[in-house]
């Protein structure tokens, strides 16, 4: 097995498992709320339905609106294929380090926000404004937690960071714990989950992500939905990669890859289950408390930085 083939398997896997992950979260939530739920395959069924449907577009929609789904989808997919899931050192993982990865997602968001404004409805602009504002406020926390992570590995390349964690002896690192908490908080915000945004709401006035894609239909909508699912899985994989990479394989042999796959599924499922529990027990934040939440994430990651210098470097 060559590393290139694992790379392809990995990217396709993230793409295909993404709806399952979304379905898994909603099933978990349903069970936690004493409901049966629609099953893990429901997002797949939704996508299939949407792909079959006709596209309806407003009269004055411009090419920005038309191409945005493709840009969003490919930028997200590109970001996803950079993240190692099974094999530590994949050919594409050097294409972009963590900062570039975040920038790729920012590119997707930029076009999504523009698409939201293209039709010229109040809701689209509202969603774009909220999304861009909150993602901007999330950025410092994101960078700070990347910074903390890169301190011990001296790198922002995912492969190097993972290798560093795998090769260093197990130790308790308060700084990493802080960085992880901050990263999880940011991931929740970036993916528009409760308590920041409610992915299942039908109330236009409270939406963020959904407000921007309100005008989409058919395959365009399917692509955007799919991209959002890929993003969720991407962040889960990223968190798993950075904090609990054990089980990933360094060689592209079959057994290693299979074991890595199994462990990856378990780890990601665990993380997503935690997300489901979290979402069940929380209500959405008031809109103007979101900045406080994000600055909280920043403070936590900064504490990680400080505790790194205070406790881990040693005097």
């Amino acid at each position: 097995m060559s590393s290139a083939s694992v790379q392809i398997i990995q990217a396709v896997m993230l793409l295909l498992f993404a709806p399952l992950a979304a379905g898994f979260v909603s099933t978990c939530k349903a069970r936690l709320q004493n409901r049966r739920g629609a099953g893990v395959l429901q997002p797949w069924r939704n996508l299939r339905k949407l792909f079959k449907k006709e596209v309806v577009m407003a009269h004055h929609a411009s090419w920005v609106f038309r191409f945005a789904p493709y840009i969003v989808f490919t930028a997200t997919l590109m970001a996803a294929s950079v993240v190692p899931a099974l094999l530590v050192d994949t050919p594409l993982s050097l294409t972009a380090d963590v900062i570039a990865l975040v920038a790729l997602l920012a590119l997707a968001r930029f076009f999504l926000a523009l698409a939201g404004m293209d039709i010229g409805t109040a809701f689209g602009g509202m969603g774009a404004s909220r999304e861009m504002t909150f993602s901007a406020l999330a950025e410092p926390a994101m960078l700070m937690s990347i910074f903390v992570l890169s301190l011990s590995a001296h790198s922002t390349n995912l492969t190097t960071m993972i290798t560093h964690t795998l090769n260093s002896p197990f130790a308790l690192h308060p700084s990493l714990a802080f960085a992880m908490v901050a990263m999880v908080m940011i991931a929740v915000a970036e993916n528009g989950r409760i308590p920041i945004d409610n992915p299942t709401t039908h109330l236009e006035l409270t939406m963020i992500h959904e407000a921007m894609i309100l005008e989409y239909s058919g395959r365009h909508l399917a692509l955007l939905e799919w991209a959002a699912m890929v993003k969720l899985l991407l962040f889960s994989t990223l968190i798993v990669d950075l904090f609990i990479p054990w089980g990933m394989t360094a060689q592209a042999d079959l057994t290693g890859v299979v074991i890595a796959l199994g462990l990856w599924v378990v780890k990601v499922a665990g993380l997503l289950f935690v997300l489901a529990v979290f979402e069940t027990s929380m209500a959405k934040l008031r809109l103007f408390e979101v900045p406080e939440y994000l600055s909280g994430a920043f403070v936590i990651s900064f504490l990680g930085l400080l505790s790194y210098y205070m406790l881990e470097v040693g005097a």
């Binding site: 006709e54 596209v55 309806v56 577009m57 407003a58 009269h59 929609a61 038309r66 409805t121 005008e215």
Partner: peptide, 9 residues
């Protein structure tokens, strides 16, 4: 598979 144009929502 063409795109149908319509009024906005």
């Amino acid at each position: 598979r063409t795109i149908r144009r319509s009024v906005m929502w």
